[in-house]
Design a protein around this nucleic acid. Structure first.
Lengths: 199, 199, 199, 199
DNA sequence: CATGAATGAGCATTCATTCAT
DNA sequence: AATGAATGAATGCTCATTCAT
């Protein structure tokens, strides 16, 4: 009671979101309850309802947070590169690396995306404009611009983008036992194969 | 006599599983309850508990059923082909077509895979030996054998298999508005790109 | 667990309604919770939700039950009489007597009527067609028919009916200390005054 | 200085009470929360708790305020009259008119009276000395004094008072569609009938 | 085999109240 | 005097499961 510090709303919100990510990773969406999140965040369920209008808003905020984290991680790497080829390789590498290093984020994001539905019961993963769309558009743009500069052969860049996204997202299911090795090997080999598609 | 009773029980089980698939598609895992399944199957919750030891076993059985359906669908097409190249193309085409035509199955399968966890809380999608592993092995084998016959160039067949699986599984998020067209176009272009990787 | 008997639905419903009436009397609508009702009825909240679609339906059912009880009590007395004068006196006497003897019913009914609102927030007591309307119509009919036979003078029978109803409903606030006396006295005097209005 | 602070506090209190009346009318007692009142009064829940010791005290203060308003409204009209007959007619007319014109006050008052209970769970509407008792005493006095001057016949003035109160309070449930008409008609007819009782 | 009544735990949410600021 | 962050209890409700019939 007395030792409880008041936090400014934003800090408290982030603290709750971080707790939500942990609980999602540990228990999965179905078993993620406000009370589990509250006790992980060392607060009360009442406070969560105070800061978020409900569970749904908390999940949406968490999703937004996760998407933003991933976007920043990948964009940082992509922007270091000058050529579209460089940007493409950076995109793939960063995408796979993110899944390897921030596993709890990836898991939490999947738990949300595959469980939250719009009021008319459309799953997020079926929505045309899904939360990761911004990254998809970036990837498509890299391919499209690279074709214009002649760095890449002209194929359907949207399909190649999907293939790349598929390869990146599957990397998440790689086992994590042997520290990094598998992810790095996988990353290199995906890049090789992508290059073959664009030659 | 005994045999017949067994068959009836099996018919009941299938009836329940089919109801579960529908409910999963319509409401998502989170909102799938035994009573919803029971009323869709026009029976009672008690009967579900009688035939399945619990919700988890029902979900596992449903998953098995779904994986079996997909496997049969793809295998049928693959086995028609003689060459490994033919088999590979058939695998890709069938995999994508299945996601386009049996959408409720794919949705239900995803709902289960992303929600059911082992007793020690490991999500299925993180399991090394996941339920779709048999199909993965088939794909890897096609690639491996095709390399031996010289139909495919020798690259890391496991990575190529993963890329192909990623491309197939992403097809699920293609919009379904324009009757098949997008799926067919996508299928053709994926095959083209895969061929480039194996040339 | 084992000592719990299964009841046919209707018996269980009545048992729950009777518990609800007691709780309403003892605690008032605001402090009437499903769990209080459940423990008074020696069951679980789950069972209440099983038999009634929600708290609202339980309250509506209870209201219906109470109105029915009152109606039967009064009708029984009214129907014994042949003349409209006799019926009118019986109506008044029974109405006041019911409030004196079935106090918990009257209290419970008031608690519901003054608290339940329609989905668009209209209180029941403001509704044109309120739950006690049937009794009101009976009273108006007695007055109207009695005017036709010449037993009563011709005044606005709807207004006289309202005055009578007001007198009956206020009797509820008479103190209950001295067993019956006050109610009987009140009843007689109301009847005298009503007769003056109809002379 | 002190005086002014007190006035400010009182102004605040009235502002809160007025907000409470609105919320009670719009949502009913059950759905009236301090936070709803706070936002209607454009202040915070903390402030309400600062000015009132709790929800109960706020409700009691609101009740007092409402009773005072009604008393003033009716007394104003009664005092204009010199004869007891005049006073009685004024009492009835004002009582009914108040319910017709200050509907939100009447609704709020009812919501409180039927929900607030004494610490030993006795509802206000069952209390011998209820908040509106002062008005009742006034009415009884008018009747009693009028009997002494010979304006009214000698009947049990307490019972006649109750009948009149019942008629007034029921007017609240008259529909409000046709601008005043029904209330005025009702008022006139009640007066006629009361006169018959006192002739 | 099959039903559906019954349970008890768990859920999201609301709320009056407290209190640091 | 005033705010709004924080708490913890209580509420209505859902659900997987059990079990008498």
């Amino acid at each position: 009671m007395k030792n409880k510090q008041y936090l400014i709303a934003d800090a408290r919100k982030e603290q709750i979101i971080l707790a939500a990510i942990e609980v999602l990773r540990d228990f999965g969406y179905v078993n993620t309850s406000l009370s589990k999140i509250a006790s992980k965040a060392k607060t009360s369920t009442g406070l969560i309802s105070y800061h978020f209008s409900g569970k749904e808003e908390l999940m949406n905020s968490t999703l937004l947070y996760l998407v933003e984290e991933e976007k920043r991680y990948i964009l940082d790497e992509v922007e270091k590169e000058q050529t579209y080829l460089g940007k493409l390789m950076a995109f793939i590498e960063a995408g796979i690396a993110y899944r390897g290093t921030k596993r709890e984020n990836t898991t939490a994001l999947l738990e949300i995306v595959f469980n939250v539905r719009t009021p008319d019961n459309v799953p997020y993963f079926r929505m045309e404009m899904n939360p990761e769309e911004e990254l998809n558009l970036l990837l498509e743009e890299i391919l499209f611009e690279g074709q214009k500069t002649g760095e890449f052969s002209s194929t359907d860049h949207k399909v190649v983008a999907m293939i790349i996204r598929g390869a990146i997202s599957l990397s998440m299911s790689l086992p994590q036992d042997e520290e990094d090795v598998r992810f790095e090997g996988y990353s290199e080999k995906v890049k090789e194969n992508v290059l073959k598609m664009l030659k």
